[in-house]
Structure formats: structure tokens, C-alpha cells
């Protein structure tokens, strides 16, 4: 199903409730009423086209958001990505960590084994934080700078040197797969850790892991397919300005 602006948002959520955290990132919260997507977006001052692009990307893995590329500001995109980061680091990951901790508490018998899973997840958390830090402290400021330079029409010497040393292509290359450890953890729980005394805790952990994994996959897709091409186009513009 392609999500369109004249659909009722409530119907869309009934159809795919995994979109709830996504609409939250736009400041749209449950209890949003009976409006269409367009009506709700206008009320909340959200760019409707952008909102639809993100929703469709999450909803349909085949969806390729090409033609909407140029229609939103970089700032809109980056704000969204930062909100998503916040959701992962402040909500999702601590939740999973608590659940794994509960697992260690519930099974005194296998405590040391579950402790291994907990340490593993902590390591993942650190790695993930580093990844996000890099994006927010290095990549995004670089993009803002490109935008400023294009608006002003003047290319400072410093930026030319910086572009030579680092371009968004490098980011694409080093955009490592942050889901790998989640995949491992799922298999450790499914196949190799001892049976838990409380099955429902393990089940909830798995639900959360599948959920986070999917969210991160779409997040990386948005970065690779919307952010990166947009920045490539900006770099290209600037290179033409120098010549």
C-alpha cells in the first residue's frame, strides 16, 4: 500500500502500527484525532511531502524515495534523523537493556550466562553511540556548512581542503552495518543461551530486537538514499562553483 496525503492517519496506523514511533518523531502523538495526513501535518507544521516519504520508506521496503529528493531542506531531514537517534538512545536501547538485566535477575541459576548477553549489549550500546556521535558531530555539521556555502555563493579555502580530505562518499563507505550485533544477539537468545525461567521476558526482548533492527534498517536506508544523494548533489554544485 502506498500511503497518500488524503488517507486518514488513524487508518494508516491500524494498517501498520509500527509507524507509531515514526510519527512521534514528527511531534505527532497518539490522540491525534480523525484527520487526514495532510490536515494533521498542516496543524502540526510538518512538511507533508517529507512526512509521506518517511512513512512510505518505513512501511514498504521496496519504496524508493527518488522523485521527492530535492523537495525538502537539509535541515528538515537532519532534524528528523536526530529525533530518530534520540528515540534509539534514550528509549529503545535502555528498554532492551532493562529487559536483559531482568533476565539475569530472574534466572539465578544461569545468571553468569545471561550476564554475558548483558555485557554484549552494553558493548553494542557504546558502539552505537559512537556511530551516532560521528554523524551528529562530524557529518551533519559538514552538510550544514555545504548548505551555507551554496547560499552565500562564496567557497572558503578551508572547505575546499576539507572536501578533498573528506567527502560524503567516504561516509557512505564507512556507514557500517550497525544491525550486525543485534542479529547476533537474536541468535544467541534463540539458539545458544540457556532456556530462561521466564519465557515472556525473552520473548519481549526478541520483539524489541526485531523492532529496533527494522527501524535501524529503514533509518540507514533514509541516510543512504535520501541524505547521501542530496549531499552529493551539493558537493557537485560547489565543485562547479570553484571551477
Amino acid at each position: 500500500m502506498r500511503i497518500e496525503k488524503d488517507m486518514k492517519l488513524a487508518d494508516v496506523i491500524h494498517h501498520d502500527f509500527s509507524l507509531i514511533p515514526v510519527i512521534n518523531r514528527f511531534g505527532i502523538h497518539l490522540g491525534f484525532g480523525d484527520g487526514t495526513i495532510e490536515e494533521i501535518c498542516i496543524k502540526k507544521s510538518v512538511n507533508t511531502e517529507f512526512f509521506l516519504t518517511i512513512l512510505n520508506t518505513y512501511h514498504d521496503p521496496q519504496y524508493f524515495p527518488k522523485k521527492h529528493l530535492q523537495s525538502f531542506h537539509t535541515a528538515t531531514l537532519i532534524e528528523y534523523l536526530k529525533k530518530a537517534h534520540q528515540f534509539y538512545t534514550e528509549q529503545k536501547i535502555p528498554e532492551i537493556q532493562n529487559l536483559i538485566f531482568r533476565l539475569t535477575e530472574e534466572s539465578a541459576q544461569h545468571k553468569d550466562r545471561y550476564q554475558l548477553a548483558l555485557n554484549f549489549f552494553k558493548e553494542y550500546q557504546e558502539e552505537f553511540t559512537r556511530h551516532i556521535d560521528r554523524e551528529e558531530k562530524l557529518v551533519y555539521p559538514y552538510i550544514y556548512e555545504l548548505e551555507k556555502v551554496i547560499e552565500s555563493g562564496k567557497v572558503p579555502e578551508k572547505l575546499i581542503r576539507r572536501m578533498e580530505a573528506y567527502s560524503i562518499m567516504d561516509y557512505e563507505d564507512e556507514h557500517d552495518n550497525v544491525e550486525e550485533k543485534l542479529f547476533d544477539l537474536k541468535n544467541l537468545i534463540i539458539k545458544y543461551l540457556p532456556a530462561p525461567s521466564n519465557e515472556s521476558t525473552s520473548y519481549r526482548i526478541l520483539l524489541e530486537l526485531f523492532d529496533l533492527e527494522k527501524d535501524l534498517r529503514e533509518h540507514a536506508r533514509i541516510e543512504d538514499m535520501i541524505l547521501v544523494p542530496k549531499v552529493e548533489a551539493m558537493e557537485f554544485t560547489i565543485q562547479k562553483m570553484i571551477r
Partner: peptide, 17 residues
């Protein structure tokens, strides 16, 4: 064979087994 990709994941596996 194991369905584990990262070195840390393999380490947990190796410890468990």
C-alpha cells in the same frame, strides 16, 4: 554455521560453549 557475525558475538558463543 552459527549465525553470528561479530567477534564479540562469537566470543559470547565461545564462552557459553
Amino acid at each position: 554455521k552459527l549465525g553470528i557475525k561479530t567477534v564479540s558475538g562469537l566470543t559470547v558463543y565461545a564462552l557459553l560453549n
